[in-house]
C-alpha cells in the first residue's frame, strides 16, 4: 500500500538515503533495521513528508504522495512518531491525543470566534476520537494528567495515541522502545501487536533485536542509506550481508554483541521450528 521507488535524499555532499525501492505490505508489522547512521530515521522522514526526496517517489494506495506536505500525508492515513519522545508535556494526555484528531476537523478562526455548530460538533468528535485512541494504548485512566508527569513508557504511549487519533492506516514508529526498561518493552510490544491485530499496518525502526525478532513479520535492512536485504526474520538473520553490515565495525560493540547473540538464538529457534 505504501510504496517507494528509487527513493533518495542528499544533504549537501552526503547521500543519506539512496535508491531504496520496495513497499510496505498492509496489515503486517514491518521492521526497518540497520546499524547506526544507516539512514533509517531519514527514510521515515521521507515517507512521512518531513523531507523532500531529491530522487525517486513515494506512493500510497496508488496515489503519488512525493513532496506532499506532512499534514496532507497524515490526512491520507500515514502517521508517525518520533525517535525521542515528542509530546506536549505541559498539556493533558487527552489534549495531546485531541491534537492528533485535528487533521480530521475543519473548524477555523471563525468557528472559534462565533462558536459555531461545527466547532461544537467537532469538539465532541475530537474528544471521542482522542479517548478512543487513549483506550487503544491503555491510557484512558490517565486522560486528565499532564502528559509530562507520566513515566517514560506512558509518554511513548501518548505519542502513539497522538498518531492513532489522526485515524491512520499506516503507523510509522521510530524506535518506540528507546529509553525504556525490558519489562516495559514487553508491555509496549504487546500493545503494538494488538494495534497490528486490529488491522493497522505498522512500520517500526528499532535497535532492540529481541523486540524485532518477536514482533516483526517482515524486515528491511538499510546500510549506508541503501537497502541491502529484505525478508522474514529467519531469512534476514541468516543473510551474510546483514551479518557483515552489523559486524563490519560500524556498529557499537554492545549492539554487535547483542545482535550476534540474537542472531544465533533466532537461527537456532527458527531452525528448530522448521523441523
Amino acid at each position: 500500500m505504501l510504496a517507494f521507488e528509487n527513493l533518495g535524499i542528499r544533504f549537501g555532499g552526503n547521500q543519506a538515503v539512496q535508491n531504496v525501492t520496495g513497499s510496505i505490505q498492509p496489515g503486517i508489522i514491518t521492521a526497518i533495521i540497520g546499524p547506526n547512521g544507516a539512514g533509517k530515521s531519514t527514510f521515515f522522514n521521507l515517507l512521512s513528508g518531513f523531507y523532500q526526496p531529491t530522487s525517486g517517489r513515494v506512493t500510497f494506495g496508488g496515489q503519488d504522495i512525493t513532496g506532499l506536505p506532512t499534514h496532507q500525508v497524515v490526512a491520507l492515513g500515514v502517521a508517525r512518531t518520533f525517535q525521542t519522545t515528542t509530546i506536549y508535556k505541559e498539556l493533558s494526555v487527552l489534549d495531546n491525543a485531541l491534537l492528533g484528531h485535528r487533521v480530521r476537523t475543519r473548524s477555523g478562526l471563525w468557528d472559534a470566534l462565533l462558536l459555531t455548530g461545527r466547532e461544537r460538533r467537532e469538539r465532541r468528535a475530537s474528544q471521542e476520537a482522542a479517548l478512543a485512541a487513549l483506550r487503544r494504548v491503555g491510557l484512558e485512566g490517565q486522560a486528565h494528567l499532564p502528559a509530562g508527569s507520566l513515566t517514560q513508557e506512558a509518554q511513548k504511549r501518548v505519542s502513539i495515541a497522538i498518531a492513532l487519533a489522526t485515524g491512520p492506516q499506516v503507523l510509522l514508529l521510530d524506535e518506540p522502545a528507546a529509553g525504556i526498561n525490558p519489562e516495559e518493552t514487553v508491555n509496549l510490544t504487546r500493545t503494538i501487536r494488538e494495534l497490528a491485530a486490529s488491522g493497522l499496518t505498522v512500520v517500526l525502526i528499532e535497535h532492540k533485536m529481541s523486540m524485532i525478532m518477536t514482533l516483526a513479520d517482515h524486515i528491511m535492512v538499510l546500510h549506508h542509506g541503501e537497502k541491502i536485504a529484505e525478508g522474514s526474520p529467519a531469512q534476514v538473520s541468516r543473510d551474510p550481508r546483514v551479518v557483515e553490515a552489523y559486524l563490519g565495525g560500524h556498529a557499537a560493540p554492545h549492539v554487535q554483541q547483542e545482535f550476534k547473540i540474537d542472531l544465533a538464538e533466532e537461527a537456532a529457534r527458527l531452525e528448530g521450528s522448521h523441523e
Binding site: F50, P69, H71, V74, T81, L91, G100, R104
Partner: peptide
C-alpha cells in the same frame, strides 16, 4: 510547543 510534532499530528 513544537512545530514538527504539530505537523506530524496533521496540523
Amino acid at each position: 510547543g513544537g512545530e514538527d510534532l504539530a505537523r506530524s499530528a496533521g496540523i
